[in-house]
């Protein structure tokens, strides 16, 4: 279910990005997709690790994968739109 929600949110974000900046350069789209992937992966690591009672792995996964994902999204939405 978590993956479906993340997929739907990414789709909505992509549609919004296309509406707001229809002529966005290809590398911004690449950064957007990469950012979505990293954020989704960080959610997988965070929730999976918590199920495994591996708290350190959870926050480390959030930091190492989610952090760069958020930075990529910030670059796209800050500079591209």
């Amino acid at each position: 279910m978590r993956n479906y929600i993340l997929g739907a949110l990414s789709g909505v974000a992509g549609a919004a990005l296309y509406t707001l900046a229809p002529a966005l350069a290809w590398y911004y789209w690449l950064m957007f997709v990469g950012g979505c992937f990293l954020i989704a992966f960080s959610f997988d690591v965070i929730f999976g690790s918590l199920q495994e009672h591996q708290q350190r792995a959870a926050w480390m996964g959030g930091l190492l994968f989610g952090g760069p994902g958020v930075v990529l999204q910030a670059l796209v939405w800050g500079l591209g739109v």
Partner: peptide, 8 residues
């Protein structure tokens, strides 16, 4: 030796 709750 790992549980399989994350794709990591």
């Amino acid at each position: 030796t790992k549980d399989d709750q994350t794709f990591l």
